[in-house]
Design a protein around this nucleic acid. Structure first.
Lengths: 206, 206
DNA sequence: CCAAAAGTGTTGGCTCTACACCCATGA
DNA sequence: TCATGGGTGTAGAGCCAACACTTTTGG
């Protein structure tokens, strides 16, 4: 399950299934683990195959094993969540799928199998991890303004955030590094920030 | 992976493997999912087979799929954690295992496969869940004194707890119901408590 | 000079922590 | 009456939430 921010919205990448009874339905990309392969490696390989992405934050979520979840056979799926900073980096679906595209997580189309359940699970995890880790680093570009950072939080947590209190807390926490440069635009220039660490660290946050 | 409190210590139930190259090593009980079986059902069935337990809190933890974790074959294991209030309720190991017993989690014997990793993972999860849910209900009998409740927390969190502050917070939270009865002993009788809910609920706690 | 987004402080209430003594009972 | 564990209150500090105006720039 791949997520990214696009047009200031939280979006998920879905593929359209090409054949079989689920033909035409949308779903998260996935595939089979190979014999002798690590689960994480299999997840990375499938992600690369369906989107072209080679580097991204990847995390095991949950394992779904209801025998009726796939009408074909008893399939056990180990769900992974991947996060990327730029939805545009996705190459497009592999030949395996009829189409691929980004959908707002609050308005996903009907999904095949039990993927709606998976999506709910993933989004819940993302939300809670945002509150006690620096996981946002995986969803933002290397360098960003504080406003972008703040909006990410308000979008994922689905609640308004007090700018002043939020800024104070985050900066006191040392989560971000302030850069010397600013971003110039049609209005007052904004200071640029980067994450102090580009790897996951747990923190007491909100 | 089964955990319980015994003699005021946090303990895990281990079985001794009977045959094969891992003969004599201790491990968590486990087994194969049957075709057409739900994962949770399989976990319950294996728990029942190795301990006789039919009811207990059960939660999926994580899926371990390193192909080298089992020298025999590429086995993917979906780890579950079970919690019970009374270590004495375990019937003893099934014929499948040579022996079974309870071990303090801080002093486990060397474990087969990657089970030490699993144990660390489970204990970490238990610790953190204790802080933001009422999961303790699964580790305590129906009725208990506040001292027992408090000791559970200090044992699992591995830190001392201020009795007065802790009591105030927990009671204010409405997590417990105070019963009319008291437990009489060689000293001042202790008020008895029960959980307000006997099912998992998430709460902002500590 | 206007529009738009960036940036900044203070106060009151509340919560948390630190801390030590009295109580009830059985032996 | 003594030993043992059960039960309770308060004050000071720190934290958090609420709240609106000024600054900087480009057009």
């Amino acid at each position: 399950m791949l997520f990214a921010i696009q047009d200031r919205r939280v979006k998920a990448y879905l593929v359209q299934l090409g054949k079989g009874p689920t033909r035409g339905r949308w779903a998260f990309p996935g595939g089979l683990v190979r014999r002798g392969e690590m689960l994480d490696d299999a997840a990375r390989r499938e992600l690369q195959a369906s989107t072209g992405l080679t580097d991204s934050y990847l995390e095991q979520l949950f394992t779904f094993g209801d025998p009726s979840r796939d009408p074909h056979a008893h399939v056990v799926s180990v769900a992974y969540m991947a996060l990327i900073p730029d939805a545009g980096a996705v190459a497009g679906p592999s030949r395996k799928y009829a189409a691929g595209g980004w959908f707002e997580v609050s308005a996903l189309p009907p999904l095949a199998y039990d993927h709606a359940l998976m999506a709910a699970y993933a989004f819940k995890r993302l939300k809670s991890k945002l509150e006690y880790s620096n996981i946002a680093f995986a969803l933002l570009p290397r360098v960003f303004t504080f406003a972008e950072f703040e909006e990410l939080y308000s979008r994922i947590l689905v609640r308004p955030i007090d700018r002043r209190n939020f800024r104070r807390r985050i900066l006191a926490m040392g989560l971000l590094r302030r850069l010397k440069e600013t971003r110039r635009g049609p209005h007052r220039p904004a200071a640029l920030y980067a994450f102090a660490r580009q790897s996951l660290q747990m923190i007491e946050m909100l």
